[in-house]
Design a binder for these strands. Structure first.
Lengths: 192, 192
DNA sequence: ATGGTTATGTTATCATATAACACTTTAAGG
DNA sequence: CCTTAAAGTGTTATATGATAACATAACCAT
């Protein structure tokens, strides 16, 4: 029941999960996700201290909620989660967007433009040109830093005399786990 | 006066033009843009005939308006342009979004996700994995089909056993023309 | 011509994001 | 300590982008 709700999302024919609260991270059994969260938060503490910026309670909470899964999370969904998680009554959009802006500036999260959603960054110290491989079935998103990709882009940019300031690479498809799942399902059907 | 309105866009600190009606395409003097439009429309006619789908008057008009410049165009701006261009009184969002959906399906346009805007495709017959180099100053957007980029992505995908279905690559920065412009401006300032 | 399919019109609403201004917390310097 | 300017957060309203649901119109194959 964890992975099915995203597949039923009626918004698009090729919809992608944007991490509803109930949807436990795919591959949840394959890794200790608590460790992911803790590591991310600890690193955020360090980086912010270093940069002499304030990772306030709110901002830290937002980061923690985004890290609840490895799937992108929408701002309004995040607001709901904030209201539940905290003792807060109501959280208005500007509050959460400001926190998100901060986290993006500090390179602690990425905005996933094709989903209007946000995801924790796994390489917060590195320049942010990584490719995001996003599974349209389970939402699982893998951040990949590929030197060949970056070199290819840099080459193309220099050929045009284009000065790169920012780049977004989002690759939609099906992750290994979901492919394996369907493969086994298909073989069962074939047996009928 | 053509290129300045996008730089003044108050929406973002790092705003990018999304092709207001007044903003003539950058490099307008550098090429015969009428020919661009005609070529795009003619090719669309052919491709749709081939695919046995109907490039209706509305859809064709939308495509033509998107091709008015080489900068991405937002759906609501497009609606305004439709109302003016045609003798129509009012065009509602679903009308224009349906046309856009059609054009995307036929690979005649791209959606620029980081801007929520749309741009004509310069390679409508090819698979749609091109990188878009978007100038944040003038909006000029160059579609680049790079084999190295594609190979790098495919390699990374296969390593993860990820099945690619779609991909968006948007690179934000400053185009050669805008860099040259500022460079000359800066040198003038330095002379004071 | 006529009936099924495809396309468009229309109204309402959802979803995402920002503007503007008020209030509170923080921390740095006296 | 105190006080005060800056940074952060709260609040209300609204801009902007996109879709749902259903009605009407155009197309075209028999």
């Amino acid at each position: 029941m964890n992975e099915s709700d995203s597949a039923n999302n009626p918004r698009f024919s090729r919809s992608v999960s944007v991490g509803r609260a109930e949807s436990v991270s795919p591959m949840a059994s394959a890794h200790d996700h608590t460790a992911c969260i803790e590591r991310a938060l600890k690193e955020a503490d360090l980086l912010c201290a270093n940069a002499d910026v304030r990772l306030t309670e709110l901002r830290r909470k937002v980061l923690e909620l985004i890290w609840q899964s490895h799937a992108p999370l929408g701002a309004y969904r995040l607001m709901e989660m904030l209201e539940q998680a905290s003792d807060r009554k109501r959280v208005a959009p500007p509050t959460v967007y400001r926190a998100l802006d901060f986290l993006i500036e500090q390179k602690l999260i990425h905005k996933v433009h094709s989903l209007n959603a946000f995801i924790g960054c796994t390489r917060p110290r590195q320049p942010h040109g990584d490719a995001l491989f996003i599974c349209r079935e389970c939402g699982f998103t893998e951040e990949v830093a590929s030197k060949p990709i970056q070199q290819a882009i840099n080459l193309s940019a220099s050929q045009q005399r284009f000065e790169v300031e920012d780049q977004f690479m989002e690759i939609i498809g099906r992750c290994a786990a979901c492919r394996a799942k369907q493969k086994s399902g298909a073989s069962q059907e074939e047996l009928l």
